[in-house]
Computed example of a mutant assay.
Amino acid sequence: MTSTPEFWTVRHFSQANPAGAGCDSMPALLRRLADSIETLGPAEVQDVVIHGELTEHGTWRSGTVYYHLPADS
């Protein structure tokens, strides 16, 4: 029987599209986040939150990925 840990670590990183024209591209943001997730290796993604901030170029997209690594357990 395994015991439930009393605490756990959740790591995170945030990324955004470059400011200016194209900052509102959801496909570009999702590609950027996916590429970064791949570089993590055997990470377990817990959540992805997409943010938007209104600018003169449209909605400036960013995202935060919450994850943990096998070594965190």
Results as ranks from 00 to 15, higher is better:
Met26Pro: 14
Val48Thr: 01
Ile50Thr: 09
Glu56Met: 05
Leu54Cys: 06
Cys23Arg: 11
Ala19Leu: 08
Arg32Leu: 14
Glu6Leu: 05
Ala28Gln: 10
Ser62Pro: 14
Gln46Tyr: 02
Asp35Ser: 15
Asn17Thr: 12
Val10Glu: 11
Ala34Gly: 05
Tyr67Ile: 02
Thr2His: 07
Ser73Tyr: 01
Met1Gly: 07
Gly52Val: 09
Cys23Ser: 13
Met1Asn: 11
Pro27Met: 15
Trp8Phe: 04
Val48Ile: 13
Ile37Ala: 02
Ser25Trp: 03
Gln46Leu: 10
Ala16Gly: 09
Glu53Thr: 14
Gly58Ile: 03
Thr55Arg: 09
Ser62Phe: 04
Ser3Lys: 11
His68Leu: 00
Glu38Ser: 15
Ser14His: 00
Ala21His: 10
Pro18Met: 12
Tyr67Trp: 00
Trp8His: 07
Ala34Glu: 14
Ile37Glu: 09
Asp72Gly: 08
Met26Phe: 03
Val45Glu: 04
Val45His: 01
Ser36Cys: 08
Gly22Met: 11
Leu30Lys: 15
Met26Ile: 15
Pro70Cys: 04
Gly20Trp: 12
Ala16Met: 10
Leu54Val: 05
Ser36Asp: 10
Asn17Ser: 12
Ser14Lys: 06
Ile37Pro: 05
Glu53Cys: 07
Cys23Tyr: 04
Pro27Glu: 04
Phe7His: 13
Gly58Ala: 00
Leu33Asn: 03
Pro5Met: 02
Ser73Asn: 13
Pro27Thr: 03
Ser3Asp: 13
Thr64Gly: 06
Trp60Glu: 09
Ile50Lys: 01
Trp8Leu: 04
Thr2Val: 14
Thr64Ser: 05
Val45Asn: 06
Val48Phe: 03
Ala19Gln: 07
His57Ile: 05
Cys23Met: 12
Thr9Val: 13
Phe13Asn: 09
Ala71Pro: 00
Ala43Phe: 00
Phe7Lys: 06
Pro70Lys: 01
Ser73Gln: 06
Gln46Val: 01
Tyr66Gly: 07
Thr4Ala: 07
Ser14Pro: 07
Leu30Trp: 13
Arg32Pro: 08
Ser36His: 12
Pro5Gln: 01
His57Pro: 09
Asn17Gly: 11
Tyr67Phe: 07
Val65Asn: 02
